[in-house]
Write a protein that binds this DNA or RNA. Structure first.
Lengths: 344, 344
DNA sequence: CCTCCTCGTGGAATCGATTACACGGAGGAT
DNA sequence: ATCCTCCGTGTAATCGATTCCACGAGGAGG
């Protein structure tokens, strides 16, 4: 592969001049510029990003460590992150932690070794020493979706409290009294926050929330299934199951189906995170929708601000309730197919 | 951030010795080794992968350019690719082409600039000059899922012909005669192959396939919707719609639903690519399942073989028909919930 | 005509690693 | 005692860029 030296030789100038042309530095004669450009063209030369990074100490690359690529929520997040990053001239390297702290650490380490310019993380746990060290060492970082309390890092996330309150009120209005939740890992902020919001909302409605109605999941489908089976075996099973993410809702669906029960007649179901398939499940699932794309874009903007020396800003956007039929009657018709990919 | 020089100074040895310890080169005294290791620990030193790559001319990184991250099929593929690559000591950088050739080229270029050791591609189109150049220049490359005919690059893919034949036979057995297909872009191999397989299978069953029953989609949900609307407006609409990928099936579902029609009573639906949600849609969707994880793993193995100087092998695995209820009666019960994440 | 700037250019240092080569000392063979 | 091997180690070249600094030419101003 041709290097800058080859280009210099071909154009009959020094490597310094070639470099100047490539980085359009002002003081290059028109003559030299055209000769260099011709040589670049002739040799099919492309600058070596590795060498450039070594010298300039910047990679124009962002790392994104997400908890689970198979979760459509994170996939969408990843997509919007890459899109915005590209618009700002950065590449993104995605690491999939698969909800496993040690895998998360592996990716953080690898990304740091590659000297990425900044890190976007949706932490799987309460904070690995590695990540804390990285923050202390000054690595530009932004948390997205989930965060680690007590760490001075901007957070870009959705606030679901109001939407959870709306959901509980909606369920209450439908006559449901025994509501259960499949919680996410307490070590994640989204895991604990959603339970808390649910608990508060229940209290507001004057509904009891026995411990047996709080199932411990791990944001994966299997746990949703397991917890739901547990609920169904209770002497007094809940009337509604609220899954704290879409995958656990999928698991719950599996469990209900395996029992031969019907939704919403035998048991109702709602989920945190709205995904396109919820429109087409049997029945369509009531969910809390996050402004996922906007979160990803805002996170990138915050991180790039931090990298380029501007003060980064934390962002909190509201989530909203989307009522469908999985919790009982009185659901409005979906206004239009929710298939539009790029939403404003 | 500490460099190898700092470690050398701290340990009282030369950088060469530090490097030797780090790459466990044999000729280093036990004493020097412990002193270096202690220094590494004390300084929290991590080798700079950028510098190392520049010197050794290898990044231990693979590029993966897929057509659409939002497509669960590709997400799963990406996941298995990353998993296998990690097991072999490589990282993966994913580029999302979003079914747009120019975006695909952007990613290929960026990955090449970063001097990735090899490229895994599922081409969006019939072959950009850029990619052809890269192959000619000797970049290790492997096509996965889709490929470019006439290019000497190993291909790892699933063969759906038998499964499509099974599907058509199944539909025929159910009494359906008017079958339509939502095809993918003809520029992609999967796009044209699936139509061809369908056409052949129809011929085998002695069924006609009028042009009006071949709708042109682009593997995105919107096109599935649009094409399905077209089908429904025909004087004689098809009895079955077969979508060549899962997203177009989603779009078809939208269209059917918007019309207030019922599946399978008013119209039947089948899809290429099986995804977890198809179990829970209304009704569960008959689909052709690919051994996605195995494809990803085989592709990585082939690419790494090529990179490390072993002869790479093309791999073709069979896809299989999974019958559910979206095409009519006589569907067997799903044996067990299809929620298990890691399938053998 | 001399001095001073400005401009375009090239030489060379530098980033942080790896590695070929040289070198000194220890130990074995003669 | 001399020579030859190894072994452990350090010096320095190298990868491909960027960029500081110096230098020569040419124009402006005195």
């Amino acid at each position: 592969m041709a290097s800058i030296k080859d280009v210099a030789a071909e154009a009959g100038v020094s490597v310094a001049t070639v470099s100047r042309v490539l980085n359009d530095h002002p003081s290059v004669s028109a003559d030299a510029r055209t000769r260099v450009l011709a040589a670049v063209e002739a040799l099919g030369y492309r600058p070596n990003a590795v060498a450039r990074s070594l010298r300039t100490d910047q990679t124009r690359t962002l790392g994104l460590v997400i908890s689970d690529v198979l979760n459509p929520y994170f996939t969408e997040l990843a997509r919007s992150v890459e899109e915005e990053a590209r618009a700002l001239g950065y590449s993104v390297i995605i690491g999939n932690a698969d909800e496993r702290p040690e895998l998360q650490d592996h990716h953080v380490r690898t990304l740091l070794d590659r000297r990425i310019d900044g890190l976007l993380v949706s932490p799987t746990d309460g904070g690995s020493p590695l990540m804390l060290d990285a923050v202390r060492a000054g690595t530009p970082m932004v948390f997205v979706d989930r965060w680690i309390p007590g760490v001075d890092v901007p957070v870009v996330r959705a606030d679901g409290r109001a939407a959870v309150r709306d959901l509980v009120a909606h369920l209450h209005g439908l006559g449901h009294r025994r509501l259960a939740i499949i919680a996410g890992p307490a070590a994640t902020t989204t895991g604990s926050e959603r339970v808390e919001a649910f608990r508060d909302a229940m209290a507001e409605c004057g509904l009891p929330l026995p411990d047996a109605y709080i199932g411990q999941g791990d944001f994966q489908a299997d746990s949703g299934r397991r917890v739901t089976e547990g609920f169904l075996e209770l002497a007094e099973p809940p009337e509604v199951v609220f899954a704290a993410d879409n995958l656990m809702a999928l698991g719950a669906l599996d469990a209900v189906r395996a029992r031969g029960l019907r939704i919403p007649d035998d048991i109702a179901l709602a989920a945190f995170d709205d995904i396109r398939w919820f429109v087409h499940t049997d029945p369509p699932i009531t969910a809390i929708a996050q402004p996922t794309g906007e979160l990803g874009r805002a996170a990138v903007r915050a991180l790039v601000d931090r990298i380029e020396g501007r003060p980064p800003q934390s962002v909190t956007l509201p989530a909203r309730l989307v009522v469908r039929r999985s919790c009982g009657e009185s659901a409005p018709q979906e206004p239009s197919p929710a298939t539009n990919r790029r939403q404003p």
